[in-house]
Design a protein around this nucleic acid. Structure first.
Lengths: 345, 345
DNA sequence: CGATATTCAGTAAAAGATTTCGTAACTTGC
DNA sequence: GCAAGTTACGAAATCTTTTACTGAATATCG
């Protein structure tokens, strides 16, 4: 039969006694090939079950229609929502997604980036590991002509393309909500202080309190390293204060979950003794008997979609413009507002 | 400088005034190249920041060190746990993962498979869409020499490689537990009847009841299409029975979540009026105030890891053996026992 | 009718690495 | 000192597809 081999364009050419270039052009509907020939080629291709060898095309065209997506973790709801949307959108644009998870390890992140560079991906979407401090690879990728779009965890540098979430709007809404429910003792469990995301949250927290003329109580801001233990300790710090807060905003839903467990262990009741609002809007809240009072939605899917859209734009410019195109060096940013949603109570 | 181009072995050869074959061999530590030459080549390669063009190698070697993973959904906890582990393991074996989600749409699944075939992946791990009935693509992939390993949702065919979860052990343990707690009115919310996974669960359910000499009440087996509405309706059927069950085993945790919500809406109390056990062990249970009594863990990460291991074996055999190797046609299966864990109460 | 377009298809190079085959130069063994 | 073996490297083919260039045949026009 076909000797277990995939048919090639050469095979078609031989059978039809025409040249491979004609076959290639016919299959790509090139106008310089006559209708009859084109039909003959396509017919035989169909019969032989011909499929182009994409590895050859990738090689020749220096384009792989592949994008790399690197995330800290695939099992975190925020990221799996994002990757899900990215894959979906990439797929409908005939792009393929290759995947890497850094597990928040900068070394591993770097290794993945190099692998993807080796695979000659057309672009990379990257939510960097929490403790990545070295971003030299950005220059390397730029040198290699591979555009990068950051999202969620974005390095604090100019000249990077990114989708950033404006965490402030959500924080303001959250505090408005708490205040309008009569809360004045509002605390904040923040993440690691060095993260831009933590800084932004904290600024917004301070601002929002000021807006309501609530004086800032330093004890009401505590920090967690985002581990389960860290989360528990952070909330315990708050609970052990002489006047404990009645409302807590926390870094994200995972922190809130651990915090709530700790609260219950202390014999207190969520949504009675103490109320929560946190970032991320974990899809599970609707199933909880005592969910947080509300959530600050960050739209992971939308962020992913925007990131991919921006990446496509960069890839196009990359193809159109020369190597000296500045589109890669100039960083563009799109800001997505966070929003208070799911008034669960 | 380097004209914005990536250096190639040709460039190295030219500068060193040796042939490209020597460079290639030197870089691959081929024994027929002298130590001095090898060192010189490696040194220059380092200086020039040479990186092999993998698209060229993939093309030449007919091997991409890439595997495809196709899952129904990336945002479901079970699958994100699996992909996370697969990516992890693939990464440490210097393989790259390309990703596709079928969204339980057979057409989309097929398209993804073809794309991956085009990418010349070395193998595919596939958890097929729930309502895929046509598995012709298996033959096509086999013809193309691409091994496939199924897991979780496995077609009911011989000659397929798969990691299957033995759902029975878990069911037996679950019912043992219920009975030992005094329950005799045990119901079962099953998934769509056509799924092998549903059939297996139901068989085990019937067997386990028989083991305890509990006569089977047909009304105590209801079905859901796994939609939120379907899940609610299913549990309502049970609750509206003249003698409602005191214990319920459900198809999976998502069903249980919806069922619990419905139970509460009816004014009943979970873990008091009615108890649940379900498959999957959703990681969120530890945060719930009224979690199911226990969970039947299916070890998604482990299943993924085993699938990848099996795939690697098949890829190796594929390389070693000829095209006529039967290893691809003979289906091998590994069974992983499900297990009752997290006695949450 | 001859000059010029237009149409259609072939030739060959190119992309970057690996690999088969071949061959100089040098070392052994006797 | 010569056959045989070893060492170290080069030339060229190869993997598949695309594409710039070229050329032949046919059509069009003045």
């Amino acid at each position: 039969m076909n000797k277990g081999k995939q048919p090639t364009i050469k095979e078609i050419a031989k059978r039809l006694k025409i040249s491979t270039s004609t076959v290639s052009r016919a299959l790509n509907d090139h106008p310089s090939i006559g209708l009859v020939t084109t039909m003959r080629v396509k017919k035989l291709a169909e019969e032989l079950n011909y499929e182009p060898n994409r590895t050859a095309i990738f090689f020749k065209q220096r384009k792989t229609f592949t994008i790399g997506v690197i995330l800290p973790s695939l099992s975190e709801a925020f990221f799996s929502a994002a990757i899900s949307e990215i894959e979906n959108l990439a797929n409908s644009n005939n792009y393929t997604v290759i995947l890497g998870q850094s597990l928040d390890d900068p070394e591993r992140e770097l290794r993945i980036i190099n692998t993807m560079k080796g695979h000659r991906v057309d672009g990379i979407i990257l939510s960097s590991a929490k403790n990545t401090r070295e971003f030299d690879y950005i220059a390397v990728l730029q040198q290699a002509g591979i555009p990068v779009v950051f999202f969620d965890c974005v390095p604090d540098l100019v000249h990077t393309n990114a989708i950033v979430s404006n965490l402030k709007t959500g924080m303001h809404e959250a505090i408005d909500t708490f205040v309008s429910c009569g809360h004045h003792a509002i605390a904040f469990i923040n993440g690691p202080a060095h993260l831009p995301a933590s800084k932004e949250r904290e600024e917004a927290f301070v601002e929002a309190l000021a807006n309501h003329n609530i004086s800032l109580n330093k004890d009401y801001i505590v920090y967690t390293d985002l581990s389960e233990k860290g989360n528990e300790q952070a909330v315990l710090e708050l609970l052990n204060l002489s006047t404990r807060p009645s409302a807590v905003i926390s870094f994200n839903d995972y922190v809130t979950l651990d915090a709530m467990n700790a609260v219950r262990k202390k014999g207190l009741t969520v949504n009675q003794d103490i109320f929560f609002i946190s970032y991320a809007n974990y899809p599970i809240w609707k199933y909880m008997e005592n969910p947080p009072m509300a959530s600050i939605e960050q739209f992971p899917g939308k962020q992913g979609a925007l990131a991919l859209q921006m990446l496509f734009d960069l890839i196009d410019k990359n193809v159109a413009g020369g190597t000296e195109d500045t589109s890669l060096t100039d960083g563009q940013r799109i800001v997505l507002e966070s929003k208070l949603v799911n008034q669960h109570l």
